[in-house]
Nucleic acid binder design. Structure first.
Lengths: 340, 340
DNA sequence: AGAGACTTCCAAAGCGCTTTGGCTGCTTTG
DNA sequence: CAAAGCAGCCAAAGCGCTTTGGAAGTCTCT
């Protein structure tokens, strides 16, 4: 059933039927009702390919997925996706994943924009002065950044959590508990979120006249193994930290293991706080010692990004609105006063 | 730059240029070269929307993503995706994720097929007599199942690992080590993979005149917490199992925690084998006691599915070819002889 | 040399929608 | 009462590609 058949059936022109269906004003209410009825009754659905060719709109949002033999997609991605799906499902909005060589995402961005494959895109894991962001901005496709970048002379729309504030609070708590030697096990230091977290922690330390020694900060991809290694290295120093703030729950697993291997205990010898993106399959309260966390649901962020992307596509949202979500600090058994 | 301009520039018809570009035989080699050259020089790329409308092919593969407030996307998904991306990237093949209400995926399947949004789809996590599979089969869109179903009167193309064989081997090893009371902590019992794993284990037990008691098998979604609960319940019985086979590394984390909480040790009191889908961020060799596993890279499976999907789209693969990958049994420190 | 068979190209008809630029006929206005 | 305005509809022209159904030119064969 296509438009031609439907309009013929109604003895109307394709123009009128199309307009009736798309809510244009120059068609009488009665006609509109007739058309709507008939469309529903016959299960008419406009062919998206045709509509696309005519309008240039695809009704899909895009994401360029960095891939490569040495590239692992972040497990956070799937949670974000769950959230995105929560919104998109209700709006028949599909997501196009365009795998790209992690070393050359630009080509792919250009392709999907030139091809008008999607109406909007979102970027994630941005770095300072991220070239993708600049590119997408000049290409003129609606977009939203999940996270933030820095060092541009233009503003852009984003959704981020208050990483700096979160780690500031975490560090402040530990300092209040008497800890003087804090360490940070961070994610990839080139990504903005990691920079912000470090900044937040340094700020809290500075406020008490403390510093974060170079040796007391480790940055690496967030795997259990890296968490373990970082923790061991930190704890085997001459003056080991008495508290660690860790950028991910997965790394925290490794930290816990290292602590055990060294015959230490949490929170007796070491206080531990980790950032929790809220995975359904790994919960901080279920750690051997319930883990204190800075918590922010990445799934909710996914839903919100989808919502804003949809708003941008339909012109409801404009400009470079940045949105920063506060982060909860959830205190559990893994923190205690500094050992004497 | 569109076809019209390009052909005008070459003083050829659109027909000829189109054919030259698409490798049709009715154009001379010389002309083809001229056309190809010009196309490359001017960066001509056919408009996919137009091509789609004309051919009905979209150059994309689809996946219906079950979502819902109570639905969590499996973290395995992201690894599978990495693999898919590995292949797709090199072939400019995009993946369309269509979020659907987990209770009504059918509507979405019908929509993406009717709309010709994608050239092929893949299904995952199939159950016996899975309705999606029957649907997709009748809808006539090329597809591949990742995993297997059962109870159909038709064959279908799939890629699966030998879950039954893997768990058969794991159980056999444990039996050989003298274990008589084995337990299984499985995934969702309604999914085929879980059924196959149970079957494999039962077969191994039966071969030695043993059985798997009803109480010795737990099925649930694969979270750390569920692993913990299942293990506790098992180990607190009167006659607790001396060996557990576990369907996922994430659950195994919980098992390890439970064992610790009960003051038991691995492998002294309990031998443990888990299935490992190969996550980059959680490795069995890094467990407190290195974990024995049945190992199969889900990422490789993703790449293979993409490859076969592409082959099906281009007609290179046909029929209901099933592909079953053997699974490695990797023995590490978490297994030992049964306690006396 | 003429018929048939290729080879190589082209004009034009789709694909199914949106949108432009009218065209009616009726109501309002000075 | 003529001019103007407006609501409501339509024919047809795109959007940019593929594909059908020739047509012209070249070869081959009897």
């Amino acid at each position: 059933m296509n438009l031609k058949q439907l309009s013929h059936m109604l003895s109307l022109s394709q123009t009128t039927v199309s307009r009736a269906l798309n809510g244009y004003p120059e068609v009488s209410e009665e006609t509109r009702r007739r058309v709507m009825d008939a469309a529903k009754r016959h299960g008419y659905r406009p062919n998206p390919s045709a509509r696309r060719l005519a309008t240039g709109k695809s009704g899909m949002i895009g994401y360029v997925l960095p891939t490569g033999a040495a590239v692992d997609i972040d497990p956070h991605f799937v949670e974000f996706l769950s959230g995105l799906g929560d919104y998109a499902r209700a709006h028949e909005l599909d997501l196009v994943l365009s795998p790209a060589d992690a070393d050359d995402e630009e080509t792919t961005y250009r392709r999907i924009v030139a091809n008008r494959q999607v109406d909007a895109v979102y970027l994630s894991s941005p770095r300072p002065a991220d070239r993708r962001l600049a590119l997408v901005n000049t290409l003129g496709i609606p977009f939203i950044v999940h996270g933030r970048s820095e060092g541009f002379d233009f503003d852009y729309p984003y959704l981020d959590i208050d990483n700096e504030g979160a780690f500031h609070e975490a560090a402040r708590l530990l300092i209040q508990l008497g800890h003087k030697r804090l360490a940070l096990i961070n994610g990839n230091e080139r990504e903005t979120f990691a920079i912000h977290r470090e900044r937040g922690m340094r700020r809290a330390l500075a406020a008490s006249g403390l510093t974060l020694g170079e040796r007391h900060i480790r940055s690496m991809t967030m795997t259990e193994e890296n968490g373990y290694r970082a923790a061991r290295r930190l704890l085997e120093e001459d003056e080991p930290p008495t508290a660690i703030v860790c950028s991910s729950l997965i790394m925290a697993l490794g930290v816990v293991r290292a602590v055990r291997d060294l015959g230490l205990t949490i929170p007796g010898d070491l206080s531990l706080v980790a950032h929790d993106d809220v995975f359904p399959w790994l919960r901080p309260e279920n750690f051997p010692v319930p883990l204190s966390t800075t918590r922010s649901s990445i799934r909710l962020a996914g839903a919100r990004v989808a919502e804003r992307l949809a708003a941008r596509i339909s012109g409801l949202e404009e400009g470079a609105r940045g949105e920063v979500w506060p982060v909860d600090l959830v205190v559990r058994g893994s923190v205690a006063g500094a050992p004497v």
